[in-house]
Design a protein around this nucleic acid. Structure first.
Lengths: 334, 334
DNA sequence: CGCGTTGCTGCAAGCGTTTACGCCCACAGA
DNA sequence: TCTGTGGGCGTAAACGCTTGCAGCAACGCG
C-alpha cells in the first residue's frame, strides 16, 4: 500500500534513481542489478505511483477519446478497436463523449482535458465542432477518424468510392430511379456524409442518370429516421425502384417501411446500406462493409507513435471497403 | 502552458494556498478573494495540473470501468450511461476491457490499475474472474453491475422475475412446450444467466409444466448462436411451440432460424427475448425491457458517492423491468 | 478591557517520482 | 604509469500542487 520507490531501493540496496531506471527498462543499468530490482518490486508487489511519475516526467500517460456517441454501433466498435490496442500500451484510455453543449454544466472537452492527456483521438467529429477545434491549439498529437485537418494524422475510408460502389451496383441491376436516404440536410460539416453524397451523385451522373432531389430524404442515422425517410420517399409521385442508405441502421428502417407498405425489399425496391453492421446479414441487406474495429486500432497505433515521437510525420490512412451483396438488391423488374 | 498555481497567486496577490482553496470551492475563503482568483485563473486560462494535484492530495481523480466487451449492445449502452454521469463529475473515466487472459502480454486489470483510480465499476463480470477478484483486496470502492459481492454496492435487475414474466406470458398464451435459448452451458459463474434460468424453470413449475432439457440450447449471447440454438431445438423430436431467449440478440437469430425453416414467428412459434434492444421493435419481437442506460448511470452515481464518502453504507439497487408484447408472440394454435 | 472565537490567509512541509549532473572505477591506449 | 573513456550508479533538485498549522484581525462577551 504505502509502498514507495524508496522501499524498493532500500530493499534492493540501490538508490531510487537506479530503481526508477531499472523498472522502466532504461539503458545504463547492470543487467544483474536490473533483475534484482525487478524481483524485489515483484515480491513487494510494488507499482509506481502514476501521479508522481507524471508530475516528475511531465507526461500525462493517457490519451483521450473524444466521441459524439458511445452506444451507437459504429462508435462502440471503433472504441473497441482503440481499446484493444491501448490495452497493450502503457497509456490509459480516457473516454469523453462530447455531450450536449446545450446542457447546464457542460464543459467543452478541450478545457476539461488540458494537461491531462498526451494526445487526442477524435471520432467522426467535424473539426469545427466547439470543443474540438480548440484541441488543435493545444499543440498535442491528434488523430482524426473520418475527417482530416492540417498537421494531424487521420484515418478513414474512401466514402466517395464506397457510395459509388453501392450506387453502381444498383445501376448495374438496371435501376434508373435511385433514391437516397442521407443523414442530415446538406451541407453538413460531417465529411463522410458529404462524401457519400458526392459518390452517389457522381455514380448517377457518370451513368447519365439525373440526380433528383425529390428522391432524397434525411434519416439522421437512426432506424426510425430511416423508416420515416423511406416512407417519405415512397409517398412522392413516381417513387424510386432502389435506394441507397448512408448507413445500415437507416437501411434497416427503410426495409421496415417497405414491408409496412406491402413491398418486398429486393423484389419491389432494392436497398443497399453502408457499414457492415452484423445485423445486415440477418436482415439480408446488401451493404458496403467498412473495417470498423481496424479503423479504431490503426488510429490508436498512430496516436501512440505520435506521442512517442512528436515530430514524426503525419499519416493519412484510407482503409479498403468491401461490398456484400444480399437479397435486398435485385434486378429491376420491368 | 507553463502556467502554475504560483503565477495565479502572484497575479492575484495572494498565496498559492489561497488560490488552491479558492479554485476548489473550499470554505474559509473570502468571497471577494475567491472571485478575484477565479477571474485571474480564467483570464490566464489556467487549469490545475492533475498530476500534481493527485500526488499532493492522494486522490487519483479517476475511476475505472472494467468490462468484458465494449462493442456489444448491452455493454456499450451501460458504458454510455456511466459516461453521462461521470462527464459532469470531476472524475476521469478510464476504460478497461478485461481482454482475453489467453493473449500474450495480457495484464490483469487490477495490477495495471493499482494506485491509478479511486474506484471500480465492474460490468457483468463474475466476481471470481481473474483480475476482478483481486480488485476486492485493493480496499477501494467497487460497484458491481449485474452481480454482487460482500461489501460492494451493486445494481442490476431482477432477472428471475424478468424471465418469469416472459415465460408466464407464453404460458398465458396457451403454450405448454416452451423452449429455452440460454447463454452458456449451466452452471455458469454469470449471475444473470443462472437467474434467468431459475425464472424460466420456476414459471414452468408453477404452472405444472415439465422442464424439458431437450428443449434447451445454448446461444452464447450472439445472433449466430441464437440461430444455431433455434435450429438445434427445431431438430429435436416434438419441438416446442414457443421459446424464451435470454437475450434479444439470440432471439433475433432464433427468428431468422424460424423463417429459414418456413415457420412464421408468432403464428407458428412464439419467441420472447430479453433486453429491449432497439432492433426488437423493428423485428417485431416481444421482449423484456431493462433500463440499460439507467443501470449505468445509477452505478456511476453510486460509485461517486462511495468515492466521496468511503464509509457510506453499500446499496443494492434493483431496477424495474417492463415487457413489450409484439408480434413474435401469439396464442398457441390448436 | 481582557480573552476566547471566528474567519481569512500565509508558510512550508510534504506527496513519490524523474533526471541532470557528477562521481567512481575498470579498462584501454600511450 | 598516466590519462582518457564510458558504463554504472547515487545525490539532490525539481515537478506543481495540497494541507496542517499558525498568525492575525475583528468581533462579541463578561
Amino acid at each position: 500500500m504505502g509502498m514507495t520507490i524508496r522501499d524498493i531501493a532500500r530493499e534492493a540496496g540501490v538508490s531510487t534513481a537506479t530503481v526508477s531506471r531499472a523498472l522502466r527498462g532504461l539503458p545504463n543499468v547492470d543487467p544483474v542489478t536490473r533483475e534484482k530490482v525487478r524481483q524485489v518490486a515483484e515480491r513487494l508487489d510494488y507499482v509506481v505511483s502514476p501521479a508522481a511519475s507524471r508530475l516528475a516526467s511531465g507526461r500525462a500517460g493517457s490519451i483521450a477519446v473524444i466521441t459524439p456517441y458511445i452506444a451507437r454501433w459504429y462508435f462502440a466498435r471503433v472504441l473497441s478497436g482503440i481499446e484493444g490496442v491501448l490495452q497493450a500500451s502503457d497509456l490509459d484510455l480516457l473516454l469523453s463523449s462530447i455531450g450536449d453543449p446545450q446542457e447546464v454544466g457542460h464543459v467543452p472537452p478541450h478545457r476539461k482535458l488540458r494537461r491531462r492527456v498526451d494526445g487526442f483521438l477524435v471520432i467522426s467529429l467535424p473539426t469545427e465542432t466547439e470543443g474540438v477545434s480548440e484541441i488543435f491549439d493545444l499543440e498535442q498529437p491528434v488523430v482524426l477518424i473520418d475527417t482530416d485537418h492540417d498537421g494531424c494524422s487521420s484515418i478513414g475510408i474512401d466514402d466517395i468510392a464506397g457510395a459509388r460502389m453501392a450506387v453502381q451496383h444498383l445501376i448495374n441491376l438496371g435501376h434508373e430511379r435511385i433514391g437516397l436516404i442521407s443523414g442530415r440536410p446538406r451541407p453538413t460539416p460531417f465529411r463522410p456524409e458529404d462524401n457519400r453524397y458526392a459518390g452517389y451523385r457522381d455514380a448517377l451522373q457518370d451513368a447519365g442518370l439525373p440526380v433528383l432531389t425529390d428522391l432524397e430524404a434525411c434519416g439522421h442515422f437512426t432506424i426510425e429516421g430511416g423508416e420515416r425517410a423511406m416512407t417519405t420517399i415512397l409517398a412522392r409521385p413516381n417513387p424510386p425502384t432502389a435506394v441507397f442508405a448512408m448507413s445500415d441502421e437507416m437501411a434497416f428502417g427503410a426495409l421496415r417501411s417497405l414491408r409496412a407498405h406491402g413491398l418486398e425489399p429486393g423484389r419491389d425496391v432494392s436497398v443497399v446500406g453502408f457499414d457492415g453492421h452484423e445485423m445486415s446479414e440477418h436482415l439480408d441487406l446488401t451493404t458496403v462493409v467498412q473495417p470498423v474495429e481496424e479503423i479504431g486500432a490503426r488510429a490508436a497505433r498512430m496516436l501512440i507513435n505520435a506521442v512517442d515521437d512528436p515530430n514524426r510525420e503525419t499519416k493519412h490512412d484510407v482503409l479498403p471497403l468491401d461490398m456484400v451483396v444480399r437479397g435486398s438488391t435485385a434486378l429491376r423488374r420491368r
